[in-house]
Nucleic acid binder design. Structure first.
Lengths: 198, 198, 198, 198
DNA sequence: TATGAATGAGTCTTCATTCAT
DNA sequence: GATGAATGAAGACTCATTCAT
């Protein structure tokens, strides 16, 4: 029996990589880089810990790779808000829902971990410096400005409004992950009251 | 040198304990129980790590003691809102400011850590189960109800309003600690818009 | 494609075996059994590491096989000195050059590794015990005795002379492999001065 | 009971450090950096492996520290030959004996390991580049030149003579450590024949 | 009471070896 | 026969905890 052909090999490799990254994301996002043991990731992915090292040279590399990916993904997520239908407030509502939904949360949390935990690789620290919330703020300026222009958003300093709103969302996202304590996810309309005229 | 009398001994002991707990709180609140090394606490307290074990049997015990204290303290903090002068919205504003100020944050953060991190002692997990946000909500029902009655707060489900508002504050507190990324602390008036009629 | 007949199969198998042993010799000789990874041998041989195990059951077996071969080969090398033309001193000169030349060094170095490194299989340790330098000494007694008889070598204890000379050569061989530090390979005439009358 | 005073602490620390370095030297010299396990050093020093890390940050650091020390020591050893009594050949004889004696061998072997093994820290590689045999050769030029002048050494290229002689000694030192195989340590007079006129 | 040397369990990482294809 | 994915034992290193002084 001849060995698998190159394409099959490649496919297996790629699938495994995805499987590992997906498992790692889940764990890293919740427990940070220090709190995460490679054995946890291996268990989550259903493979041996040794195999992790066929795909990623180290815990740091795995973490860094995920952070890079997360930055791209969150970038795109924010960006895609412009494609949505409706008025500015509709888009903001959709964005808000999206951020608070379980779905895309992990990437965001990972970035939070990358920003706030110890033991984060130097490279990630660098990435984070260049990738602060300002970036998101800038991406949303056009949307919020239009909202002000059409009277759907309150007047006032644009950047402050955006970053305040994002901060509230960020905080909720961080709380969101843990079902434990009885945090209540506020309804979107309540949150929008902060920025919408009454 | 005459030996200290018993009372003086006691006093020194108590001061040391306070010193250690204060240092430990600062570190645990920011780094969680896993991310905190006993040597960090010792350094923060300006003593040798060996000495810690004269006062606390283990890292777990120290953490647990602090959590118990934090629960009492945050309880009192919430409770004390009723002593403040002014109308309900004034009191809520003051409470909000208090929670977002650097000052009392550590205890709250410690509870957040206790609730969300790994490696938390079983006893603390038990404490947390019995001490969810509902407790705070109950404590604030009277205040918020009065606010609704006098027309300072919007109508609607009382408990949901309180826990939503607390969740937003909680999220912001968690973000608050890290100066890093460019999180913006929203102005109190903006936050109050969520619960106050225009 | 008709399957190869049995003889062809055999031949391929033997060639592969040779190819692997040749690669392994090169690596083991320089890095010892511990410092050598199976993947290095596979890379040197241009095959996958998995394939090694079709030909040799383990690293130990591969190493042991090579050592056995090396012992035979060095035996023959020493022996063949008698076939060379010229007087005893001519033969010794040729032997010296041969040992110090890059060429046949690997087998000798492998034996050195087998003798001096850790992690050497028990079986090899046994082999080495029975295969000390005495063996070489015995093989060279006739040659050196003749050298003394014809006055080309200094008088004195024969065995001591041989083993001293071989020790010097052995030491130089060990140094020889590494081009790094600036070891100087002494000229043969200088070395011969140790045993030749002036 | 009060803790030890500072001086006592220091003394204990220094003694332990020496004890560890001495143990490590013994093991590294024979087995190289890869073949040496920290547990071997700990065992040799009679302490736990954990304690090693109170004194040296890593295996690499320990190895590097030893190599630096060895370079200084071997430097001094060579240098001290000039203090010895007697004619040049007497001094060379003494140096030879010294190098082949068990005593100072470990440092030399460590340098040999540093020069030839894998897994050597980058810093050591750098050290070695700047510290080749040329250095020893230079230090001995005056001695050997004088030997030629007084007719105790053969004429001919000075540097080549020195480095050839040192290479022979080096090779013997490397063999010397292992009692195993039956290597014969040549008598000094035999070795001196390489460089002395009949 | 106070210090820091000492220990060892637990985690990351490497690599010989196995095995499905 | 050939490949490389997969496993797990073993070694480097960290850190909570103990203990002599």
């Amino acid at each position: 029996m001849s060995p698998l052909n190159e394409e099959q090999q490649h496919q297996i490799r790629d699938e495994r990589r995805e499987q590992i990254m997906s498992a790692a994301l889940k764990v890293f996002a919740r427990r940070g880089i220090i709190g995460t043991k490679m054995s946890m990731i291996a268990a989550e992915a259903g493979i041996s810990h040794g195999l992790l090292y066929h795909y990623f040279a180290s815990k740091e590399e795995l973490f860094t790779t995920l952070v890079e990916r997360a930055m791209i993904a969150s970038d795109e997520a924010i960006h895609s808000v412009y494609e949505l239908p409706g008025t500015p407030i509709d888009k903001i509502r959709a964005l808000t829902l999206d951020m608070l939904d379980e779905g895309g949360t992990d990437y965001f949390l990972l970035i939070h971990q990358a920003r706030t935990s110890d033991g984060v690789p130097e490279k990630v620290v660098e990435l984070m410096k260049r990738y602060s919330m300002d970036k998101y703020v800038k991406q949303l300026q056009a949307l919020f400005r239009e909202g002000q222009n059409v009277g759907e958003l309150v007047d006032g300093d644009l950047d402050e409004m955006i970053s305040s709103y994002l901060s509230v969302l960020s905080g909720l996202m961080v709380l969101n992950v843990q079902k434990i304590g009885g945090y209540q996810r506020p309804r979107v309309d309540v949150l929008l009251r902060m920025i919408a005229p009454l």
